[in-house]
Amino acid sequence: MTRFAMVIDTKTCIGCGDCVVACKTENRVPDGLNRDWIVEATQGKYPQLTTEFRSERCNHCSNATCVTLCPTGASHHWAGTNIVLVDPDMCTGCKACIAACPYDARLVMHPDGYIDKCTFCHHRVGEGLDPACVSSCPTRCMHFGSLDEPSSEVSRLLKTREYKVLSPETGNEPNVYYLI
């Protein structure tokens, strides 16, 4: 499996939400729905504080429980990669995959009814471009690439910086990394 990863530097992420708007326009995500979102985590007591911003989305899990539990095969790993996609023509809207995602990363396309989610912009990845969110981020804190290539930016960052993933205990093996 070719492993694509997103590496996001929380040291420079400012929580601006540009990545969210970029996703919405690029992918024509309907009003009121989001494939990505920003979380702010603040800890401490004034004036002893820390704040972390995180741009979150589907983690394109190597062990994707959403794919495992989909009864129709509509949710699948794309072309031998870890990129998880939904084929609208195969999707019954049973929502098993939504319940199966520990990151609440899926959405129901209203009014159509099939399930949608972040695609890692595979239509761009296929052309060698970064996902829309990554290429819009004004602080350039987002990075995208293949973990199989040791020389890629993402591999390099994970080798040289401290990082975390969200809820690793899920066992889903998420592929969105946060540099800390």
């Binding site: 939400g17 979102w37 985590a41 603040t42 800890q43 007591k45 929502k95 129901v108 209203h110």
Partner: peptide, 23 residues
């Protein structure tokens, strides 16, 4: 105090504020 919150409004149908896909 620990605050963990959405700073972009997320209100995905049937997902937010908590999952309610099945009734």
């Amino acid at each position: 105090m620990k605050e963990e919150l959405f700073v972009t409004a997320r209100s995905n149908a049937l997902i937010d504020p908590s999952l309610h896909i099945w009734t």
